[in-house]
Amino acid sequence: MATPSIEPSVLRVDDDGRVTLLGGWSATSRLRHFPRSPVCPFTGADDVAPLDLPRSGTVWLHTTVQAPPPGYTGPTPYGLGVVELDGEPLLRVVTRLPAEGVARGDRVHLHGEEVPGPEGEPVLTWVFRS
C-alpha cells in the first residue's frame, strides 16, 4: 500500500507509488492549468477537461528555504521553485526542488516525496529532480 497523497484532488498516487499532477485543459482557452479548477483560471471558460500533466520539465526559478514555514514539519533546508512543464502551451508550476545544485534550465522529473501531513501522518507530496 503506497503512502497516501497529501491532497488527492491535486496529486494522484498509484498503487506502485507513482505520482501524477492532476491538471485541467480548456479547449476554448487552449490553456492547461494546475491544480484542476471547475473553470479555466486564466479565462473563466467552463469547459475544463481533466488532464494528467507531463512528468518532466525545465527549471525556471529556484530558491532554498532554510527555516520551516508555519505548519511545515518536514525536512529543511528544501528547495522551492517553478518548473516549466513539457508540452504546449507554456505552463509554470510551483514545486519543491532539491535544496541545492539546481540551476535555471536544468531538466527535471516528477517524483513523490514523503513529508508529515497536517496530523503528522506520512503523506506523499511532489518534487521535481533530475
Binding site: 497529501i6 491532497e7 491535486v10 526559478l61 529556484h62 530558491t63 528555504v65 527555516a67 520551516p68 514555514p69 508555519p70 505548519g71 511545515y72 514539519t73 518536514g74 528544501y78 522551492l80 521553485g81 517553478v82 510551483v94 519543491r96 513529508v115 508529515p116 501531513g117 497536517p118 503523506v123 507530496t125 511532489w126
Partner: peptide
Amino acid sequence: PWQESAGLNPAPAYFAL
C-alpha cells in the same frame, strides 16, 4: 493545511523567486 504540510507557503521564498 496541505499546502503548509508540503512547504508551499513560505512568503520569503516567493519573494526570492
